[in-house]
Write a protein that binds this DNA or RNA. Structure first.
Lengths: 366, 366
DNA sequence: CGCATTGCGGAAAACGCTTTCTAAAACAGA
DNA sequence: TCTGTTTTAGAAAGCGTTTTCCGCAATGCG
């Protein structure tokens, strides 16, 4: 059907290890060893090989390499929604690190859809990725467990099946959310609402629980009407704040499960007569880039996607190359911390408990 | 060094074409043909093969397939900045289409950096992608030309070297920008400024030129001080509007080269006493998702990333599988159109030229 | 019924690489 | 000088596919 490959391939003229071998007058085995820096090859020979490599412009064929070595040097990265601004930041960082360590990245987003997720994993396995980081924050782990061999390197966030091949990135939600709640309480807030993400996400539930715990620890009540379920989108945030605004009396502060929700709240409130932060303080979660640029700049809990990405890559490599792993670590802690900007201040008519904090927050103008 | 592969591979237990062949009592050649739906194989045999495939859970090894067929079924997609919200939308669409057509996608962002771009292309070639869509809107085409064989399928946006392997996605900036300018002129604006992107980007220059042309055609002057160069980021938009605000008299409307810039303008103006749209009308470009949700919702020129992605995938396939290509098309037109929202209205004290348009824009409340 | 033709499945040769196995050379010790 | 040991490079066996080539059986035709 096709013309003989040799004569006129319509792919790029492929220069193979054989060409290098011929040029350097050595066997292909030696070329392979030299290129892979196997130490037993004579330095002079190696030099000759490298020269030939440069001369003929040799680039090893990754497919062939993967075929024989069983390693593709590709890491799978599964996120929930590439269009949610948090994830591109994560993806970028992950990719930078992976590439720096000799890996390629295969990205996919689940869009919270089980079938799509299954497809995605299948595709990744078919491309024989060396491991997968599942950064969806808590969805579909059963699908993954079902599709994947029990010794396949996997990284989950927060929680996952307790198997030796699975590494966990444990995000310390409590820490940052406690800081947020204490910050609000210190400003004088007592009525604080929480807009969660979709509760089937482990991370969403975890954040909500952290909120409740922090409130309880301060002796503050959280009536059911102050816990609204959102969906981690801007639109969801707008809808949620509308629900809260419909209450006989509004809480004086709202903590949101992610920044997009918080931004939605900001936008929702712009349409009302309520002002942020004077009437209502708003706190986000994630600290996406955009958070600094909304109006007012968003006070939020930072979950560093740098450390998240770094931990994920490290953890994956630990699973893929056990020989290079240092400590056989199975849990990787991720810190979270409050970043105070302008979207929080003391409630109208309430004197702040802590002068200092109030002063810094007060700088928020409009 | 390693244990004999057969006995205890630490990769997933790989079931190969041989296992299927054994099970179906046919040769591996037949399995291959059946799996690839070659029509010459007897339907009964094919059925037997498929049954065996299902029974042993066979999944073809893409690496081996790529090695022998010379096609990886991977499309490269190069964008400038994955963290610019326009691109994730594009990426998502591109990926959906590619996957639906049997391709995988390898994504990379240049971050406007030449060295990084070169690295990226090298990586893509090393993974032997079947073709690359360069959606950076005009950067580094020389790098690509240098690294890539002259018959390698390539897709560029706007313009590129005139080679037979290169397909061009021709975005019709004129159309949408003309609509924007006419819309503003119809509302009564005469002093309209333009904030461009980085002018070394072809697309940025093209948008600016389209703006100048549209203005000229309406007999409107564009003094140099009304042409500000931005950088397509939110921060750049804020900086640019500050520059304009420092002018003895502000223009009554600003057209921006992309939505992030426009959003930056919105934010910049919030810090002043000027109101959008009452004091200044703002128009964006791209129509990213966020544009609907800023305050006020942004009037913008929509460049459909759906059609952009669709055209890119189609054009790539046309280059990769010439046998399946319909018309040997080398230019793919992309339309742009104005979407009127709330960030534009007639200038203070000016009666709109066109009653109707003004009425629809007037709906903007605040 | 015999011969040419067609249809279809199997054997085997790649694809480009890694890695094992083997053998040659170099060296040391007796 | 010969044997035994250590290097180090080459030969060759795969890795899991696709695809060509070949041969066998079945069919059509005279």
């Amino acid at each position: 059907m096709a013309a003989p490959r040799k004569s006129s391939s319509n792919r790029r003229a492929t220069v193979s290890i054989r060409d290098v071998a011929r040029r350097a007058r050595v066997s292909i085995a030696t070329v392979s060893r030299a290129v892979n820096r196997v130490p037993t090859v004579d330095p002079d020979l190696a030099k000759r090989v490298w020269k030939a490599v440069a001369e003929v412009g040799y680039v090893p064929n990754t497919q062939a390499r993967a075929l024989v070595s069983g390693r593709s040097h590709i890491l799978g990265l599964i996120v929930s929604e590439i269009t949610n601004p948090f994830f591109p930041e994560l993806v970028q960082e992950f990719e930078n690190l992976a590439v720096a360590q000799g890996y390629e990245v295969m990205i996919g987003s689940t869009n919270y859809d089980a079938e799509r997720t299954e497809q995605l994993i299948r595709r990744m396995l078919q491309r024989s990725v060396d491991g997968v980081a599942v950064m969806t924050f808590g969805i579909e782990e059963d699908i993954i467990k079902r599709l994947v061999e029990p010794d396949f390197p996997l990284v989950f966030v927060d929680a996952g099946p307790d198997l030796p091949n699975i590494r966990l990135l444990k995000v310390n939600y409590d820490e940052g959310i406690r800081e947020a709640v204490q910050h609000l309480a210190a400003l004088g807030h007592r009525e604080i609402a929480f807009i969660s993400g979709p509760l089937r996400l482990r991370s969403a539930a975890a954040r909500r629980d952290a909120f409740r715990k922090s409130m309880a620890d301060l002796g503050l009540a959280v009536p059911a009407r102050h816990l609204v379920e959102g969906d981690h989108t801007l639109e969801g945030g707008m809808a949620a704040i509308e629900k809260l605004a419909a209450l006989p009396e509004l809480p004086t502060a709202v903590v949101c499960s992610n920044d997009m929700t918080a931004i939605g709240v900001l936008h929702g409130l712009f349409r009302t007569t309520y002002k942020v932060p004077e009437d209502i303080s708003v706190v986000g979660f994630d600290d996406i880039h955009l958070a600094q640029f909304v109006l007012p700049p968003l006070t939020t809990v930072q979950m560093s996607c740098n450390s998240l990405a770094a931990a994920a890559v490290q953890a994956l490599r630990a699973g893929i190359e056990p020989e290079n792993a240092r400590a056989p670590q199975s849990e990787w802690p991720i810190a979270t911390h409050l970043v105070v900007r302008r979207s929080t201040t003391f409630p109208r008519g309430t004197l702040p408990a802590l002068k200092r904090k109030a002063a810094s927050a007060k700088a928020g103008k409009k």
